[in-house]
Computed example of a mutant assay.
Amino acid sequence: MALVTPLIWWLLLATKVFALVDCVRRKPYDFEMAGTLPKNIWLVILPVSILVDIVFQNPLGILPLLGTVAALVYLAQTRGSGY
């Protein structure tokens, strides 16, 4: 268990960083076409989720899990939409 928890933490952190990088690279028009939250909102949610993840360093805590869900929702709505 001592090896699994850090591995999960790194994987979820990498997912959040990937979502943030993808968000920065997308145009605001892409968010409108995908029917999701505006880019500015995602540019607040995703860095906060990364910061919470770094501060708590517990992938199974409630706040880090909420950040992970937010990143996965972002990826599903924007990358999954094809825009």
Rank of each mutant, 00 (worst) to 15 (best):
L3F: 10
L3Q: 11
L3W: 04
V4C: 00
T5M: 08
T5A: 13
T5W: 05
P6K: 10
L7Y: 05
I8W: 02
W9C: 01
W10C: 06
W10V: 11
W10Q: 10
L12M: 13
L12K: 02
L12G: 04
L12F: 14
L13F: 15
L13M: 14
A14V: 06
A14H: 01
T15G: 10
T15N: 04
K16Y: 05
V17C: 11
V17H: 07
V17D: 06
F18K: 09
F18D: 12
F18G: 14
A19M: 08
A19C: 13
A19G: 09
L20Q: 02
V21A: 13
V21D: 09
V21H: 08
V21S: 05
C23V: 07
V24Y: 12
R25H: 11
R25M: 14
R26N: 11
R26F: 05
K27H: 13
K27P: 00
Y29C: 02
Y29M: 10
Y29F: 09
D30M: 06
D30V: 13
F31Y: 15
E32V: 12
M33I: 03
M33H: 09
A34S: 04
A34T: 01
A34K: 02
A34E: 01
G35Q: 00
G35N: 04
G35P: 05
T36V: 13
L37Y: 07
L37M: 14
P38T: 06
K39R: 15
K39E: 08
K39H: 06
K39N: 02
N40I: 05
N40Y: 12
I41A: 14
I41E: 10
W42F: 14
L43A: 07
L43E: 08
L43C: 12
L43W: 08
V44I: 15
V44Y: 11
V44D: 04
L46E: 05
L46W: 07
L46M: 10
P47Q: 10
P47L: 11
P47Y: 11
V48W: 08
V48C: 12
V48P: 01
L51A: 15
V52Y: 00
V52W: 03
V52D: 04
V52P: 03
V52I: 15
V52K: 02
D53C: 14
D53Q: 15
D53H: 14
V55T: 11
V55L: 14
V55E: 07
F56L: 15
Q57R: 15
Q57D: 00
N58F: 07
P59H: 10
P59I: 04
P59S: 08
P59D: 07
P59Y: 13
L60R: 05
L60C: 07
G61P: 05
G61N: 12
I62T: 14
L63N: 05
L63P: 04
G67V: 06
G67H: 06
T68G: 13
T68A: 12
A70E: 09
A70W: 10
A71F: 04
A71M: 03
L72W: 06
L72Y: 00
L72S: 01
L75S: 03
L75V: 01
L75I: 05
A76C: 00
Q77P: 01
Q77R: 12
T78N: 08
T78E: 12
T78F: 00
R79F: 04
R79K: 12
G80F: 01
S81A: 15
S81Q: 07
S81I: 00
Y83Q: 12
Y83E: 11
Y83W: 15
Y83C: 11
